[in-house]
Each structure stands twice: as structure tokens, then as C-alpha cells.
Design a protein around this nucleic acid. Structure first.
Lengths: 228, 228
DNA sequence: TTTGTAATTTTGTATGACAATTAAATTAAG
DNA sequence: CTTAATTTAATTGTCATACAAAATTACAAA
């Protein structure tokens, strides 16, 4: 006869669960104000320290925002913090960052092909046109293109992931600092992706995105090699 | 003339960054023991309260584990906690859960097609065979199939995401409780995915997985509708 | 009515005390 | 000498209290 060890949670973790439960149950909504620390500690019957530990954790995860004298509020949207941290901890090298990006963006573009709105299609097209007109650095426009696609998936969780991924990619690339940009190729790829999305064709969009990101990957890895 | 507001971080957030920096800089490795709370508070020149808030946050995110009398250790692997919480907060309905799953798994399977090892191929095949032999519930085996694929992408971050996604999916489906299972179709899909992975063909693997998960989605949504 | 100051509210930080957990050290028993 | 039992100690866990900081609100004076 063997007893399973009981996984005891400390009080602050239990409080975290309770507070998240307020959101999940619909008692409070994103953007709503929570009771004050003093009220919460009484409600949960724990010390203020425990409550602060729980709230600090929730704030680090972007689930709440706390402001002196105003109070503590649930965030309006799923924050990028948790994923940013996971990314920061995982980012061993450029290759794995690129692969993470590929993996996520291929999924995003598939959903986008199913669900993209005319408005987002126009915004996408605008970035393609802006890139054609751009004289110098088109990184921001390039990034915007990818962000619109993630947004088009109409899924707040997925959308919360694109920012951290692209930021980490940009940051890593800066450190390598290869300035071999081929705007024509990138623009061509973006156009192909755009056309596939316009047709609402997931497989075609996937293939266009995979081609694009594989090219980005190969170029970056080549640049890395030449740098050594 | 406009001044940008300075984004001031409180002390516990600053301490979090410093501790994560220990990992990123390689000073400490996953699994290593951190200094004690008392030592850390001296090193960082903050009170014990602030240090505990920071450590509680790190523990809530699965980055460290703390044990009475033993100390505080960096986790061996990227935890699922951050992503679990993001998922918990985002999970409005079955449709969005299904879409999240589709998006992520399509990316995973693409990378898996590039990188899968013979060993993982064998394990995949074993699950397909196990499902053929299964008399009753093959949920665990089905889940394992998908987990192996995520593992095959050989990316710790992506691998940390599959567990929470599948758990949430299972949990949501339980609540719907439609018992319309077609093992033959699922097995057929798994076989097609397996064959594509064996050929190391990303596009084919993607298409097979997309077909499978679209079927899963349609069936679940149909079941949901019939339940209302 | 506007401006300046004081009061207030809520979060932020520090300190000290004690509790709880659990490993290590010491003592006692066979 | 070995094993078992007890005590001690190390580290995290919780609580309480005090004060600081930030920033809004209320009140008084011009």
C-alpha cells in the first residue's frame, strides 16, 4: 500500500490560484479593480506578506497591474511577460530562436488564412507597399507584417506570443550585425504570403511563410558562420 | 518638447531580472543551487521581504524551486507554469482552445519533420501500434503521440507548451463528454503523420496534421452543438 | 475661481519574531 | 560497532509592526 505524496502548496500559491479563479469564474473581468491588499488579506485570512508575495507573482506574470494609491487591476489582455521569460530562459542560440519563430509563425499564418478580415488584409498590403517604398531600414515594417498575421489569427494567446519572439529575434540579430538585406526577396515573399491569405488558402499560406522563414533562417545562419 | 515617462521598476522586479541574469550569463546553470535568502538579500542590498517577493514570483513561474532547509534551485527545464497560466486566462471557449492547439501543433510537426530522430520515430510508431491494439480508452496514447512530436522538434520552449495545451484540451472535452470516438480515423491520421515524418517531409507532415486536427476540431464543435 | 498645502489612501520596503520543514549531528540502546 | 532515537540546526514560510513613497483627494487661503 503506497500513498501518493500530497503536493502541498504554500499559502502564496494558494492565494494566486484563488485570485486567478476570480477571473476564470467571471466574478471579475479584465480591467477590473481588485480589493486592496488589506481587504484581500482579510478575505483570504493570510498575512499581508503572503498576499504581497502572491500579488507580486501575479504582477511579474503580467496578470495584474499595481499602482500606489490607485490599487490593483487585472490586465486587459494576456501579457507577454510569461512567454518573454520562457523565451529568455530558452534562448541558447540563434538557431533555436529561429526555429521557435518558424514553428509559431507557421501556425499563426494557417489560422490567419482561415480567419483574416478585409481590414487586416488591407493593413498587410499597406506594409508590403511601405516596404517597396522604403529607402533604408524596413525592420519595423517587416515586423508589423508578421504582427498583423498573428493578430489575424484572432486568438489573444497567440497574439501575445509574437511580440516577444520578434523582439528576441531582432535583438539577437543585432548582435550578429550582418547587414545583408535583400529587400526584393523579402518583399516577394511577403507578397506571396499576402496573396495566399487573400485567397484564404491555409496550405498555400503555410508554404509561402515556410519558404520565407527558411530563407531568413538560412541567411542568418550563414551570416553567423561568416562572422566566425 | 515631450519627455518619455520613465518606467520605474520596483525592487522585487529588479531582483527578478538579476536572478534571471545569473542563468543567462551562465554563472549558474539549470539545477544549480542559489545562495540562501539571507545571502541574496545581502548581496542585492534589499530587505528579506523584497527578496522573498522576487523568489516567490520566480517560483510561481517555475524558474526556481524552493525547499525548506535545502534551499532554492534553478529548475532543470523550462517550466510549463507560465504557459499554463496564459492558457488558463485565455481559454474562453472550446473553439479557441482548438485553434490554439492547431496553431501550435502545426508548427511543431513542421520542425519535427526536419529534425526527428530514429528513436522518436520508433516511439511514434509504437504509439500507433498501441492504439491499434487498444480496447477502450486510447486518450493517453493519443496524447503521447502528440507529445513525442513536440519533443522531436528538439526545442525546450516548444516542448514546454505541449503539455498544458493537451491537458486543457482534454479537460475541456471532458466537460462536454461526447463519446463519439472513431479510432480508425484517428489511427489513419496518425499513420499518415508518421509516414510523412519518416520521409522527413515538412509540408506533407503539416498537411497530415492539419487534416487530423481539423477533423478533431470539427468533431468537437459538432459535439458541442449537439449538446445544446 | 485658482493655487497651495495638508490629509489620506494604497502600494512599497524594512525589521524582527516565531513557525514549519527536514536534514545533519549527537546520543542512547542493543 | 551498528542501528535507532532524539536533539540540533539550516533554510524557507508566515506573521506582525512600523514607516516610506507615490499620488489622489480634500480643505484652506488668496
Amino acid at each position: 500500500m503506497e500513498f501518493q505524496t500530497v503536493d502541498k502548496k504554500n499559502l502564496s500559491k494558494q492565494v494566486i490560484d484563488e485570485i486567478i479563479g476570480l477571473l476564470q469564474s467571471g466574478q471579475l473581468k479584465p480591467g477590473d479593480r481588485l480589493p486592496t491588499e488589506m481587504e484581500l488579506m482579510t478575505m483570504c485570512n493570510v498575512s499581508r506578506s503572503v498576499m504581497r508575495e502572491a500579488l507580486s507573482s501575479l504582477e511579474a506574470m503580467g496578470i495584474v497591474n499595481r499602482k500606489t494609491r490607485k490599487g490593483t487591476f487585472f490586465s486587459d489582455r494576456i501579457g507577454s511577460e510569461p512567454f518573454s521569460i520562457m523565451l529568455a530562459l530558452s534562448s541558447g542560440n540563434l538557431k533555436s530562436i529561429l526555429e521557435t519563430r518558424i514553428s509559431l509563425e507557421l501556425g499563426f499564418v494557417t489560422l490567419a488564412a482561415e480567419k483574416i478580415t478585409d481590414e487586416d488584409l488591407e493593413r498587410l498590403n499597406a506594409t508590403v507597399e511601405a516596404m517597396k517604398e522604403a529607402d533604408g531600414d524596413y525592420t519595423a515594417t517587416d515586423k508589423e507584417f508578421h504582427e498583423i498575421i498573428a493578430h489575424s489569427a484572432s486568438n489573444p494567446l497567440l497574439e501575445a506570443m509574437i511580440g516577444p519572439v520578434l523582439n528576441l529575434y531582432d535583438k539577437t540579430l543585432e548582435q550578429i550585425s550582418t547587414n545583408q538585406k535583400n529587400p526584393e526577396i523579402t518583399i516577394g515573399h511577403h507578397e506571396a504570403i499576402y496573396e495566399a491569405l487573400k485567397e484564404k488558402n491555409p496550405v498555400k499560406a503555410y508554404q509561402a511563410m515556410y519558404t520565407h522563414l527558411s530563407y531568413v533562417r538560412d541567411k542568418a545562419l550563414r551570416g553567423l558562420k561568416e562572422r566566425q
